Amino acid sequence: MSEQEQAEIRLEFARLKQEHMDLDAAINAMIATGCDALQIQRMKKKKLAMKDRLKALEDKLIPDIIA
């Protein structure tokens, strides 16, 4: 993998990580104010999908090392 590809992956990882944290804060605020449970559930599902994407990007950056 080239340096440019790694840099792009790191940039996307950082962006998604920030978005994931922002979504977490929004979910907590919605729970505190007693918003619609269905909307909260949808946001939690989106957050979980982001977490899966973050894990996939992290796996691309860390090479498999067979010991």
Rank of each mutant, 00 (worst) to 15 (best):
L48P: 06
Q18H: 04
I27W: 01
A32E: 14
K60G: 02
E3C: 13
E19T: 11
M43I: 03
I27R: 12
I40S: 08
A25L: 12
A26H: 10
R42Q: 09
A49I: 06
R42N: 00
I66E: 12
E5N: 09
D24T: 06
I62Q: 11
F13V: 09
G34E: 09
E58T: 06
I62R: 14
Q4W: 13
L23C: 01
L57C: 05
M50N: 11
D59L: 15
A26M: 10
L16D: 00
L48Y: 14
R42F: 10
D24I: 00
M1P: 02
A56H: 11
L16F: 05
A26I: 05
M30F: 03
H20D: 05
L23I: 04
M50G: 00
L23Q: 00
E5R: 12
M30W: 12
H20R: 09
I40R: 14
K44W: 02
K17N: 07
L23A: 01
E58D: 08
S2V: 10
K60H: 08
M1F: 07
P63F: 11
R53G: 07
A26Y: 08
R10W: 09
Q6C: 01
I40H: 15
K45S: 00
A26E: 13
D59V: 11
M50I: 08
I66S: 01
H20F: 00
S2T: 12
A25N: 13
H20G: 00
A25Y: 10
K46G: 03
Q41L: 07
D36G: 04
M21L: 15
Q4G: 04
Q39T: 11
M1R: 00
I66M: 09
D59Y: 11
K47F: 08
E8A: 10
I62K: 14
L57G: 01
L23Y: 01
Q4V: 08
E58K: 13
E8P: 11
L16Y: 04
N28Q: 15
E5K: 12
L38N: 02
A37K: 11
D36M: 10
L16E: 03
D24W: 01
K46D: 02
I40E: 07
M21C: 15
K46S: 07
M21A: 15
E12Y: 05
K44E: 06
I65H: 11
D22F: 02
A37H: 04
R10I: 07
M1Q: 09
F13Q: 04
A25T: 10
K55W: 10
E5C: 06
M1Y: 00
Q4S: 08
K45T: 08
P63H: 13
Q4A: 07
D36V: 10
D59N: 14
A14Q: 06
A56T: 12
R10K: 06
D64C: 13
L23G: 03
I27E: 01
I31L: 13
A14F: 04
R42V: 06
D64W: 13
M43Q: 00
